[in-house]
């Protein structure tokens, strides 16, 4: 982006953003997906997204462009969802948790019978992880990995790491025992770690760049 464009975006983003139906629709779709996953109720999700969007668009003049607007909108949405979750305890039901067979199948791919890493699953060093955060492609990989998590795992993982609820809040909200929450988060992290490692850190092109 040139300096001129930057100035233009900083000082007159309003009309452009509001007029860009495609941009708004895209952002709305992402918000709905996120809110529905968290609230498991499409009406509550629609409401939360609606409120967040209205709140953000009222202040649209003060945003320096799409990225800033989107960050802001999602920050509002996160707060709304956290409120809804805290106040609507028990209405959100995560259902009967994991069944033990799934759990075993999941973990036996990663660990041998004695509970040690299978040789080809053993985590490798990630080199310079901060570097990845500056690469657009990395985020596509990360998003795909998040999308690949089973819904229950994705849900509690996002509550914990995205909305930043603490463990007790999550347990109350989704009626989960602490130990079951730990199981779900453990599995989510195992999967996510594996996916990011396989799809990003172990890819040939990355190694070429390093050498």
């Amino acid at each position: 982006m040139t300096a001129n464009q930057e100035i233009k975006n900083t000082y007159s983003p309003t009309g452009n953003l509001l007029a860009d139906g495609e941009f708004l629709e895209d952002i709305r779709r992402q918000m709905i997906r996120f809110a529905t996953l968290q609230l498991s109720d499409s009406h509550m999700a629609e409401d939360a997204v609606q409120e967040a969007l209205i709140g953000a668009l009222k202040n649209v003049a003060s945003f320096g462009g799409r990225a800033a607007l989107k960050t802001w909108v999602f920050a509002i949405l996160k707060n709304k969802i956290a409120d809804v979750l805290r106040h609507k305890q028990r209405t959100v039901n995560i259902g009967s948790l994991v069944n033990d067979e799934d759990e075993e199948a999941d973990l036996s791919e990663l660990f041998d019978r004695k509970g040690f890493w299978q040789p080809d699953e053993r985590p490798v060093a990630w080199g310079n992880p901060e570097e990845s955060l500056r690469e657009g492609q990395f985020w596509q990989v990360f998003e795909a990995c998040l999308d690949g998590l089973p819904p229950k795992q994705a849900r509690v993982f996002m509550m914990r790491e995205f909305i930043e609820l603490d463990a007790d809040e999550i347990c109350v909200t989704v009626e989960l025992s602490t130990s079951n929450l730990h199981v779900l988060l453990h599995r989510a992290r195992l999967r996510l770690r594996e996916c990011v490692e396989n799809k990003w850190y172990l890819q040939g092109e990355r190694n070429d760049e390093l050498s």
Binding site: P129, R134, G136, E143
Partner: peptide, 17 residues
Amino acid sequence: LRTITRAYAKGKNEQLE
């Protein structure tokens, strides 16, 4: 993983794009 997720939540990926 935590650093990545928090950066993602803050819209880091969008700013990059």
